[in-house]
Each structure stands twice: as C-alpha cells, then as structure tokens.
Design a binder for these strands. Structure first.
Lengths: 345, 345
DNA sequence: TTGTAGGCGTTATCAC
DNA sequence: GTGATAACGCCTACAA
C-alpha cells in the first residue's frame, strides 16, 4: 500500500508537481483541460492529500484538541458531541484526550496537543489549576474552558459557563412555590466555584422569599452518587427535618433518591428532590427527577464557535471574543412534587 | 508566539541541527556533556517537537482514528474511554469522528482519517456497509470493528464482538429458572446481525428447556426507548400474556418499564424484564434492571491492543491477530424478580 | 563525536 | 500556463 503523492501524479501526467498541486487545489492558474485531466488521474490513482505535509507549510492543522476528565460522563459526552459536530462542519478534526482529573495526565495531554500543533484547545469540566493553566497558555493557541473554573486570567483563555447562580435560584424558587420552607442543599466538592455559585443562588432565593438561611441545612457532598446516599440520613436526623432537598447535581440527587427508597420513604411526598444538569438518566429514575437542564449542545457549539472566530484568517484574533454565560432551564418532573400538587389542586 | 525549532536550538548551542536532533532523541552518538547542555537549553527555550514534521519522515503518526455513531451513547463512550486510555499508555493519540450513522459522514470520516495518516482505525457499533467497508480497506492500515457487523471480509479488517448468542441464552435461562414459561423478546432494528444472534440465543434457551418457541412472542423493535414503550401494549394484548420480556437492549427495556409503570403495572411482579448492555442508567431505574453486561472496557482495551500488535515494528503485521468474541455477564437486579423470589422462599 | 546533505509531501514564489 | 526552486521541521545516511 505505497502511498501516491503529487509527484507520482506529476510523473503520470507528465507535468511538474507544482502544476498538480495547483490543479488539485482548483487554482485558476492552470488550464481547464489539464486541470480535469489531473483531477481524474488523481482519483484513479487513489490519491489522498497528506494533511501533515500541508499543515507543515500552511502553519495550521485544522485540528483542535479536546481535553475531558472522562468521556464516560454523559454530560461531557454531550458537549463533546456538539464540539465535534460543529468542528466537522468547518473542516476541523478533533483530538480527544482524557485527563481523569489527574494533574500529570492533564499536562501530558496539553504537551501532546502542543506537539500535534492543534490550532485550538477546549477543556471540559475540570478545575484548571495554576500549572495546568500555565501549560495551556504556553500553547499560544486559543483555549476555551467549558464549565471549568480557573482562577487565572490568560491572554489566550476564554470560557463558556452555565449560570450556576441563576440555575440554583430557579430550583429553589420552584420549591418555594410548591410550599417548601425548609430546603436542604447537598453541595459538590469543596471549594469548587460552581458549587459556591449554586450555594449563593440557593441562599438568595431563600432570602428573597423571606425564608431564613440555616447553615445546618447545607450538607457537604462530593458530586458523586454516594455522597447523595450519605446525605440522606443526615437530612433525616435533623431536629427540624427539611421537606425538600436541592442537590449540587443529578448524580448526587439520584444517589439520594436511591437511599430514600431503601429507607422506605415515599418520594416526592416525604421529600422533594431537585437536581442540576439534566443527565439522560434523570428522566428514567423514579420518580423522574426535576432538575436544571444545562444547554450542553449549545455550550459545546458555542465554545467551538469561539475557537473558530479566534482562528479566522489563520492567526489568533483575540479581543473579538468574550466570555459567555448561558442560562439553564428548569425541567419540572415528578421528584419535586409539582405534578402531585396540581393533581391535588 | 513564534515556535522554536531544532535549528533555533542549534544556533543557540552553536552546534548543527543534527546534533540537536540526536541529543533530544537521546542518541548515544552524542557526548554526554553536549547532550545535557542541549537538553536543558531546549527546555529553557520552551521547545516542543513538531509531531507532523516527525511523522512525515518517520512514516507513522502515532495516532489512531476512532469512528463512532455518537459519543453520546454511554455504551460507546465507555469503549472509547478504554481505547483512549490504552492508546495513551502506548504513546498514541486518538482522533474522534462521529458518523451519526449517516453514510456520507462515515466516508467523510474515513477520508479525513486517511488524510491525517492515522496508523489504525477503530469503528464502534455501526453496520459497516459495502462502500464504508471498501473505504476502510483502502486506508491500508489496520482496522478493528467493535460490535460492528460487516458482511465483508478484508485484508486489514478485524473485529471484537460480544457473544450475543450466549448473552441472550443466559438471560432467558435466568428467566426460566425463575419459573417463567412465556417469555417475549423485543427485537432491535431489523436485520441487524447482533439482534439475530440474540434471537437465536433466546430460541435455543427455550428449546433446551423444553419450552415451545412461539413466533408471536417476538415483538419487533428498533433498539430505541420508544420501541420499548410501544412493545408493551402489544405484549399485554396477547391472548396468552407473557410473564416476562427480554429486550434487545437496556434502552428498550427501560422504555418498556416506563410504559409499564404508566399502565399501572407492578414490576417485576406483573412482568419481569431483562435487558442487554448494562448501561449506567440500568441500575438507577426502578426497579433496577437485570441485564447482560457487556465488558465494555475490556472490549475497548482489547481492540486497541489488537491495533498495537498489528502495528508493531511500524508496518502492519497481519495474521498475528484474529477476531475476538467476549462473553457478557448476567447482572441480576430486581426487574427480573429474582430478589422477590428469594425473599418469598 | 559532530557536521553536511538529502528527503518526507506539501504550498508558494519566482521565473519563463 | 507551467516549471524550477525553496521552505516548513524533522530524521538519517554519509562524511569528516
């Protein structure tokens, strides 16, 4: 399977390789006749242009890197799907790298992408620490962080984030409208900015409704299902039991619901539950989970669009792009008891 | 951000660029002293080797292409995760391409991968039709199909598949042991080989148990959730109602369970359900779904391993690898009623 | 131990 | 219109 190059075609067509190059790129500098002759010849010979050789001289690879913690996260998968799709529509390919949230792999991924000379990088759902950030900056290509908190600003770094504050605010407002007055919050991993923002939204909604903010109702979690399970007994053991609980994310909420069922609770009657994210599973659990849907596809598309804008005419066009915050949407299902309420009404 | 090349280092170190090249690849043909001098210089200057330039001369890119229908499928995501992970461990990167099961995008993906000169390709969960297959073969690099049926054999094409027959067989055997005698099967999309194999396993298990095979119990589906929902009324309308139903996959089973709950059925008491795949959602639905778990990580790893073997010493080593079939594992949860049974016992 | 020269497959800049 | 020629960044004989 010896590859055929433009030189081979040149030989076969008895022209110079430059003419072949021109003909194949449909340049006007070549006669219509030889152009078609060469093009059909190329097809016959099974020619495929070598993207690397081209990139080498063009200075761009038409490739972007996508760094994820794990593609196994349905939330991330959806975003990556949108990225890949819009990248494809614009002639870009995607190199995928998983970091597993391990710092070593994070920087290994970035170095790999640097060697591959990607034109841009998108990072999903990590805490972007100082070293990580520094490596990203050193790439010298546009970087877009999606739902990834970074304390550091950078010349090449932009972000797309969901409005955590507003999302949580909506969730709590919904519960308050349903008549709840004691609403617990199960947090995500400590010190994550998105968790803190959601907490702030939670608090503001309470305050605006004239309800007291009780720190005891804030139960520390990790963002994983088991922390939801562990949160349940804590909530139940409170002197004044909450009647509803808002969770940092769906996975936590689902874990909590699982534990509740095992504890013999009847949801949402005994306890209303609301999550955040709208993962696919959310609509299949019982009762179906009320949640804040993040516009994942939109976020992925938007992020890739930003990279494309930054890349127009080849070189990074900084300053034509600014950070983006998108709002999530409240999806009312059964776990919050809204159905129940309207049925009773 | 002008990139630093091997020549820049050469200039700074006052040696030739070949010496730099050697030093950086840790060649023994360079004095220990200059080697360390050059290496530290490279680090200082922020040198990053250009993978494309290297590939151009080396003839290999240390990159594989992964073609998926959609990364959004949790089943596929898990496989891709395993592929990426073992690829990374061996110094390979992954280019991801989604086909959406559209023939045009399939061949576009393959052509893209060809231009990028990937060293191998992995394809997940598609029907690989004639043209698709032909394009894959023309790549001239190893191709491994994962759970992808292809009618065509090829010089470069290998496969990793789950044992569909045995999986279905296990599922039915489980139901029979629980006392079921009328067991329905909701199929996948028509004419897919994996569905046919599962059907065959279903049938064999019945026959071996001395139960009659009733074609009426085979309900056509599509592999999507809605086909599960639509299958339920069909099952319920049968003159002799089935007491259990085995579904082509989990998604179908979950759709069916959803419909059953809405119909007021009490699962698994009124109807036992078993799926296939073990998607993450399976353990969170109510009742938790009994299913056949495909060893997704193992399959992804194995597939990538095969590519690596085929690539050892640079050129394709065909004939050192053969197709692989792995067995799934029965995961007993509550939807099949096993718990119930043991509780009653 | 190091330097020179050639080539990998392109595109681009000159001449003709 | 077309053909040399150089260049992109790297590796690797072959010379020195």
């Amino acid at each position: 399977m010896t590859r055929v190059s433009i030189k081979d075609i040149a030989k076969a067509a008895d022209v110079s390789h430059s003419t072949v190059s021109r003909a194949l790129s449909d340049s006007p500098l070549v006669s219509a006749e030889t152009k078609t002759r060469i093009q059909s010849l190329a097809r016959q010979m099974g020619y495929s242009p070598d993207a690397q050789a081209r990139s080498l001289v063009m200075g761009r690879t038409l490739t972007v890197g996508v760094v994820v913690t794990t593609i196994t996260d349905p939330f991330i998968a959806e975003i990556v799907q949108a990225i890949e799709s819009t990248a494809h529509d614009h002639g870009y390919s995607v190199i995928l790298a998983s970091s597993n949230a391990e710092p070593e792999r994070e920087i290994a991924a970035v170095e790999m992408l640097r060697s591959k000379r990607v034109d841009g990088v998108l990072v999903t759902s990590s805490r972007v620490g100082a070293i990580y950030h520094e490596h990203l900056e050193r790439l010298g290509v546009p970087v877009v962080l999606i739902n990834s908190h970074s304390e550091h600003a950078g010349r090449y770094t932009f972000s797309v984030n969901v409005d955590n504050h507003h999302g949580a605010y909506q969730a709590i407002q919904h519960l308050i409208q349903l008549g709840h007055e004691r609403i617990a919050y199960v947090t995500g991993a400590a010190d994550q900015s998105d968790d803190l923002e959601r907490q702030a939204g939670y608090r503001q909604a309470l305050t605006e409704a004239g309800l007291p903010y009780d720190p005891d109702l804030v139960i520390p979690g990790t963002g994983h299902a088991d922390s939801g399970e562990q949160a349940l007994p804590i909530a139940l053991a409170m002197p004044k039991r909450p009647t509803a609980v808002f969770c940092y994310n769906d996975v936590t909420a689902i874990g909590l619901m699982l534990a509740a069922r095992q504890a013999g609770l009847h949801l949402p009657h005994d306890l209303a539950v609301v999550g955040f994210d709208d993962v696919p599973t959310a609509s299949y659990v019982y009762p179906p989970l009320t949640t804040i849907a993040q516009p994942k596809r939109k976020m992925g598309r938007k992020a890739m669009d930003m990279v494309l804008v930054l890349l127009q005419n080849g070189a990074p066009h900084l300053g034509q792009v600014s950070n983006v915050v998108v709002r999530g949407k409240l999806i009312v299902r059964e776990s919050s008891g809204a159905q129940l309420l309207s049925a009773e009404a």
